[in-house]
Amino acid sequence: MRRDKRGEDEVVVDRVACTAHGVCSVVSNGAIELDEFGYPVPSRLTMGRRDARELVAQCPARALLIARDR
């Protein structure tokens, strides 16, 4: 993950929307792992703002969100 001067965001998984494509694990270089059924672990992850936006944009199920409480 790159350092990002623009600060950090927390990415959360929308558990209902997630359909285990696994793209997040690849895009995050393994910072997000997949469980035995292909679903992401952990459920929330803090990262640089740019990486966070990219990760959210890449999810084919649109199941990643930027946490509202930050």
């Binding site: 997630c18 469980d35 059924f37």
Partner: peptide
């Protein structure tokens, strides 16, 4: 049956 970790776990 909505969330994978529950639906399969």
């Amino acid at each position: 049956g909505q969330c994978g970790p529950c639906m399969f776990g």
